[in-house]
Simulated scan of single mutants.
Amino acid sequence: MARNPEGALTDDEKRIVKGFLARGDRNQDIQALVNLGRKATINSARVTEVKQDDAIVPASDADLDFFKEKKKCYDPQTGLNLYDDERLIRAREAMLLAVQVFNSPTLRFKAEVFAVQANIAWTYLLHEFYLREGAQIIQEDGRSLLLSQMIAREDCPLSQGIKDNLESLKQIRDAVEHTLFRRADNRFLSIFQACCLNFEKTICMLFGPDVALSNDLSFSLQFAKMDFDQLVQVQDFDVPEHIRTLEKQLDEDLGEERLSDIEYRFRVVYTFENSTKSKSHIKFVHPDDEGADEVRNVLIKREISDKLFPHKAAVVASLVQERSGRQFNTHNHTQAWRKFDVRPRANVGQPENTNKDYCIYHLAHGDYTYSEKWVDFLVSYLAADANYKELRKFKL
């Protein structure tokens, strides 16, 4: 049934309304039923107009019963209807199933199921897109367009990075049919993660934010804490040769620029350091977000510690006294780093647990050095008389 964005009844809807009126249904009940799932709702005057128009032929009982059944099938959250949007519903469910299986702690058939289900999800998604564009998705042999055929079309709405990701996903799915993956799930995690993010971005772009999958998903939790050395080792543990060959095959046709595209392979950099509770959260930044370039520069920039933390304690005390005009010696400096928990005290088990904004520990010669940022902080803090007096009273 055609939808009318102007809020007026279509000819089919007029026949439906006429049929319910003939059955004796109340105007307000008919209005409420028609408005279910409708983008532009109608008011009671539209029902009255149908009631007064003798030229409208009432719909059959079968049509009325089907109309009621169809109205029951609207999802209030997404606005999708099982009869009108079946492919889109199946696309969402296939991707949700792929994610749920991969995140399950009890299942071992992860990479295989994800590759197959995600391929199905993208196929349904693009089928729905092309149907709404008026394209023919059924070929002469009676089979519908393959995913590989749709991403090769000139009118494909996907970016090159997403296409590369889906091509790799297809190769992984094809390999599933002929080889045993064993414990290779983590080898393709970055490709799978990018596939999920791409799907969410694309379904919202093509069909609106109401159908987003993020409303139905949350981060998966784990019972074991991450150990960096173990994470590094697991990447190479017990990986069959045919998996290594497949990985090489996935990348060999792509240049460095396409390989580094976050829509092809999702990558996150984790750093391990102490932080305050207010700063101890993981934050994901999209490459297109404001400030992303600055974050990227920080992640890839390499500086030696002597350049970033050039000052020993005596130098810090001298600089602070000079710039603040306050009396400030090494004893006051000790009061300061203890007050602000900048570094651990002597003879602790983990001397490297410092506030990395201000201080680092040098394992080679067993002492601490401080940053220019720490000097600036102290100068600013001591500018207030109350702060200066409070620090000098701080007990070690």
Results as ranks from 00 to 15, higher is better:
208 G>Q: 03
217 L>H: 01
82 L>Q: 11
381 Y>G: 09
324 S>Q: 06
222 Q>K: 14
53 D>F: 02
357 D>T: 12
334 T>A: 14
197 L>I: 11
274 N>V: 11
270 Y>Q: 09
285 V>A: 08
344 P>A: 01
47 V>R: 00
311 H>L: 11
395 K>A: 14
185 D>L: 01
168 S>Y: 05
10 T>W: 02
324 S>R: 04
110 K>W: 04
249 Q>G: 03
346 A>P: 09
265 R>E: 10
84 D>Q: 15
57 V>Y: 07
321 Q>H: 05
365 H>M: 08
283 K>W: 07
281 H>D: 11
196 C>S: 13
351 P>T: 02
329 N>E: 07
224 A>T: 14
193 Q>E: 13
72 K>W: 06
17 V>K: 00
185 D>H: 02
38 R>S: 06
180 L>E: 12
41 T>P: 15
29 D>L: 03
196 C>V: 15
315 V>S: 13
57 V>Q: 13
5 P>C: 06
245 T>Y: 02
328 F>E: 02
74 Y>C: 09
234 V>T: 12
359 C>S: 03
273 E>K: 15
283 K>S: 09
246 L>P: 01
29 D>K: 13
274 N>G: 08
188 F>T: 02
27 N>P: 09
131 L>S: 08
229 D>V: 13
180 L>V: 13
48 T>H: 05
37 G>D: 01
395 K>F: 10
165 N>V: 09
184 A>F: 00
352 E>N: 12
111 A>K: 08
91 A>W: 00
10 T>L: 07
115 A>C: 09
264 Y>L: 10
174 D>C: 07
362 H>N: 03
232 V>C: 09
324 S>M: 04
177 E>L: 14
127 H>D: 01
227 D>N: 06
121 A>N: 05
283 K>V: 12
306 D>A: 14
209 P>R: 14
